[in-house]
Amino acid sequence: MILFLIGLVLFLGFHSLRIFAPAHREQMVSRFGEQGFKIIYSVLSVLTLVLLIFGYAHAPVINVWFPPAGMNHLTITLMLFASICLFASLIPAGHIAVKTKHPLVLSVKIWAFAHLFSNGDLVSILLFVGFLAWGVVMRISLKRRERAGLPVLRPFVAGRYDLYALLLGIVFWAAMIFKLHELLIGVAPLPM
């Protein structure tokens, strides 16, 4: 459990530097250059993610509550919206990205919130509450940056990107439900 908590704190903390130490990125870019910063950031992101996953996989299972039957269906339904927002954040901005303002942060919040319905063990609750709290704090931080006049929103490009986000999100969502989740996570969302 300790390894999981360290991984969770490091991963979320590392991805919160812009909130709590806004000048840190600029200092790192001036020291290592834009490309150097991206390499360092990527390597540290992967390392903290590996630590988080390893800690999660080896944490003891302590059940806090037992989700009622059918909660996984609610989770699966909400994950469709999370998947669409995820892809809206990865492609040029359409209406979805513009209206949600920060589709990646929204995707993380929906993902975390949805999984709280179908996971009752302590380590899962800590994981999803941690990511949900990170999403809320990140959204508040982004709103403050907007009000301060700092650029945080992507400009609208074209409505066709909404169609791409929908299609890619649905395909990804279906792939996760019917095979990928079980292959990657070890749990089938729809037990047969």
Results as ranks from 00 to 15, higher is better:
162 D>S: 05
110 I>L: 09
157 V>Q: 14
54 F>E: 10
27 Q>M: 13
145 R>Q: 14
104 L>S: 09
86 L>C: 10
162 D>G: 09
160 R>I: 12
2 I>E: 14
178 F>W: 11
173 W>M: 03
109 K>A: 13
90 L>N: 03
188 A>C: 02
124 S>V: 01
119 N>T: 05
140 I>A: 06
72 N>L: 08
131 F>L: 12
115 H>E: 01
46 V>H: 05
38 K>D: 14
178 F>Y: 14
67 P>I: 01
105 V>N: 06
42 S>K: 10
53 I>R: 02
107 S>I: 08
172 F>L: 07
141 S>Q: 01
184 L>Y: 01
42 S>C: 07
179 K>C: 05
12 L>H: 06
39 I>L: 15
185 I>Y: 03
19 I>L: 06
29 V>D: 13
179 K>R: 12
155 P>I: 05
27 Q>Y: 09
66 F>W: 12
51 L>G: 09
148 A>D: 12
83 S>E: 09
77 T>R: 03
150 L>I: 10
145 R>W: 03
125 I>H: 03
48 T>Y: 03
52 L>R: 02
69 A>P: 09
13 G>Y: 02
166 L>Q: 09
174 A>L: 15
159 G>F: 01
1 M>T: 10
142 L>E: 07
127 L>R: 00
106 L>T: 13
49 L>I: 11
133 A>D: 06
162 D>R: 02
66 F>L: 12
30 S>M: 12
83 S>F: 05
27 Q>D: 12
173 W>H: 14
84 I>P: 04
83 S>N: 07
36 G>D: 14
164 Y>T: 10
29 V>Y: 10
17 L>N: 08
16 S>Y: 03
156 F>G: 08
41 Y>S: 05
67 P>Q: 06
90 L>W: 13
172 F>T: 10
73 H>F: 13
43 V>T: 09
91 I>A: 02
